[in-house]
Structure formats: C-alpha cells, structure tokens
Design a binder for these strands. Structure first.
Lengths: 232, 232
DNA sequence: TTCAAAATGCTAAATTTTTAGCATTCTGAC
DNA sequence: GTCAGAATGCTAAAAATTTAGCATTTTGAA
C-alpha cells in the first residue's frame, strides 16, 4: 500500500530553490523508520517541521473498533507539522511510516530561525499549504456530488499519477475503502464496474491502469464542472 | 441564511496586530455588495486578496441542475483569494455575498509589497490557512465516521459558535442539507431527532439552541476521539 | 389584509450502502 | 512445495438515503 493519495498537491520540497532546501536539510536530523513504525501519535505536541525524504507517511486516527481510518498519505518531498508550528494545534493524527521511510526533522527553534531569515520560505510554504487546502476542498466536493464509481476512478487516477510505475497502483481494496470512507463491498462493486468499462485491471493488492489517458477522459466526461480546477 | 459554516477557524483579521491590519486596510479598496450579488465567478483570475469586513461570503459551485452546492461560508475577518495569490490556481468557486457585505480588495502588487515588507504577515497567514486546512480535514473525517445525526449536531454547534445571537442559528433546512451534502429529507429527520433529544428547537428558517453547553456535551459523548483536536 | 413565495412536514417507493458472513484465490515465508 | 495469512469475490438481509411527490405553515412584500 503505497501512494494512496497525497491530495494532488505539489510537495513543498519541489517548490524550494536548491539553496533553501539544502539549508533546511542541514538543520535537520534524519530519522529512519521501518514499515508500520509510528512517527508520532495523536496528541503529541513536540513541535517541529518534518520533511519526507523517501518512503511515505500515513496519517490516520484509530477507530473505535481498532481499525485505522486513513486521512491522507504523503509522499517524498511533502512536509508535515505545520499545524503544530503555525496553528498551535496538537498532532491531530497518528503518523505511520509506509515502507522504509526517511524523515528529516527540524526542531522548532531551528526552523523558526531559517523561516525568519529566508523570506522566500514563507511564500513557498503558503503555496504548498494552500494547494493542499484546495485539494482537500475539491475532494470534499467530490464526496458530495459524485457517485462512488466516479470517485473511485478519480482516486485511482490520482494514485497512478504519483505512482512510480504509472501502469499500476499498489493498493488493496480495503485501503481504498478506508480512504474513500466506504465499505469494502461498495469498493468491490465500483472496481468491478470500472473493470467492465475496461478502464482498470484488477489484481491482487494492485490495480492496473493500462491507459491512463482513457481513464482521465472517462472521469472528465463525468465531472464537467471541475475541468478548470486542473488549470486550463 | 447567515453564518452557515466557516469551518471553525480563526479569521485572519483577528490574528493581525493592529498596525498590520491598518496597513492592509489602507492598501485596500472597499467594495459593497448586496445580498446575493456575485463577488467573483469560478474561473476568474484577477489576483488579489480579499478581506471580509462585514456580512458573509458563500463559496459555491453551480450544480448541473442549476442549484448551488455550497462549499463554505466565511464571515467577517476571514480572507480569501490566497489560492490565486500563492498557489496560482484560478478561482475554484463562485463567491456570492450573503446579506449586505463589504469586502476589502487588495490588488496583487499592493499585497505583495506589504507581504514582503511585513515579515509577521506570512506567519499569520500560514496560521490562518493551516487552521482552515485542518478544520476541513476534520470535517472530512466526520463525513466518513459520524452518523448524520451527530454531524448535523456538530454543524449546528459550529454555526451557533459564530452566530451573533448564540441562542439561535439562522439557516434553512435546505441550506443545511446542501452544506452537509445530504437530502432535505435526511436533514429533516436528523433535526427531528435532535429536537426529540431537546437539544434544538426548530423554527422557520432558524434553529434554536437553548443550551449550547448541553449540545456540546452531547456531541462530545459521541465523538470521543476528537476531543483533543479542540485543544485540550 | 392579502397573497405568493419560501420553508417545513410528511409519505412511500426506489436506490444505495452497510453488515456479516463464508468460500476462494493469491502471495511470500519457511 | 507447503501453508498460513492476506486479499478478493460473492451473497443476502438490514439499514440508511434519495427521489418525487404533495399538503401545510410561515413570512414578508404589495
């Protein structure tokens, strides 16, 4: 279960000019985590900014029944911890490594110093945060407007976009169900539907996307109002 | 239909020190809108920051059937337009005045100048944006986890918090339905249920909240995992 | 005061989704 | 190769939600 969703926003690291990225990196302590290891828990309040170097981080809340509800998964280049740095909120989610994951942690004092000395950083962090905000708002709109079949297709297309192997998405149906907030039965039905349309190929723990352009087109045909959001 | 939801985040204006607020105000052009007037449309790309002085602004997308799907409503002190300023996104929503509304518009060149000269502004905008991001993420979690009855209660509690008259929320059931993304029948049923629990009193275009503490407690009893998000 | 528009209350059928199983298939570790 | 665990496929009943009405009440403007 990799690249589940990073809400289609550009990672902070890809926005930073080289010098700034290097300076942040120099101030950071890299920490390695094994698959499934906890990076921080809900409620922790040790402040600092974290930047994902490799691997991915899943943010989730333990459900009443012991299962985890995944809110988002961020991949390399994305940062987290802004909430605690800027908004003075406690960690709202457990953060768990997905696969071998390296995270660079920058303590609040060090980050503050760089933030104050590098005026460009503020603008870029605002860019990253704003993009995430609007990506989440779009997702929220989708939940209210689109039938599950289309939402599922969109999610898969998004995952394919950020996957290494563009032809295939590694993700179990259960994970998809959690992420979309529906039952496994419903996801199974939606996936069957998409396979019937020849848009995806179901596998074991993976979903093949033979023709991403076709998938994108199929989605676009069913979300007429969202076209301009993608920047055209 | 006022104070529908501003996603429970603190408005930017309340975060700004007096001098900074004054400087922004001096650089802005105030524009008055009548109830229902369009402030901007989806797809517009004239960049600038807008700060709501009075009234409220509804952000929505016209649905295929002519109806509007409301994403959020922001009240006095909140700003909008960051997406276009920082993330280079086109306006994703129509912005429509709710009641007599005054909005201060700051052009991009003017805003950029202040932004560059006032280092404190960046941090405060990050605070406001991050708070909104996390408020939306929480709302998204709620959609997936909580039964409609509880979600409805939460929405009403949130509206009551930002309403002028704390005992009452001005909002039609149809608006509530749109905002929560469900049908009017479902909202009607949920509201009846809450009234049966003596938590609210239904009126015409309004919902009475005789005892907000009791409502908050009822919600807290049903959302055990969310307690810490409120900052305790 | 009257009246049209808006909002609510209600119903019942149709649809969607969940729940709770269980059988089967696939995978990787041993 | 075997085998346990993970993942999928499938079913059917139960629950929740939507759709499409229509009647009634409330409001504010003429």
């Amino acid at each position: 279960m990799a690249d589940l969703l990073d809400f289609d926003s550009r990672p902070l690291l890809s926005l930073l000019p080289e010098g700034l990225a290097a300076r942040l990196s120099a101030a950071a302590t890299p920490v390695d985590y094994d698959d499934g290891e906890t990076i921080h828990s809900r409620g922790d309040d040790k402040p600092g900014l974290s930047i994902i170097q490799s691997g991915a981080v899943r943010f989730a809340i333990p459900g009443a029944d012991g299962s985890y509800i995944t809110t988002s998964i961020l991949g390399p280049g994305h940062c987290f911890g802004e909430a605690i740095l800027f908004a003075h909120l406690p960690r709202a989610y457990d953060a768990i490594a997905v696969g071998e994951t390296r995270v660079e942690q920058i303590s609040k004092p060090r980050f503050d110093r760089i933030f104050d000395e590098e005026p460009a950083l503020a603008r870029l962090m605002l860019e990253a945060t704003t993009q995430r905000l609007y990506a989440v708002l779009e997702f929220l709109d989708d939940v209210r407007r689109l039938p599950l079949l289309v939402r599922t297709a969109k999610m898969i297309a998004g995952m394919a976009r950020s996957a290494k192997n563009a032809e295939e998405v590694e993700c179990s149906q259960s994970d998809l169900a959690f992420t979309l907030g529906v039952s496994r039965v419903s996801i199974g039905k939606a996936l069957s539907g998409l396979q019937d349309e020849r848009l995806i190929v179901l596998g074991y723990g993976r979903i093949g996307v033979p023709d991403r352009a076709a998938l994108d087109q199929w989605i676009a045909d069913r979300t007429p109002l969202q076209a301009l959001k993608r920047g055209e």
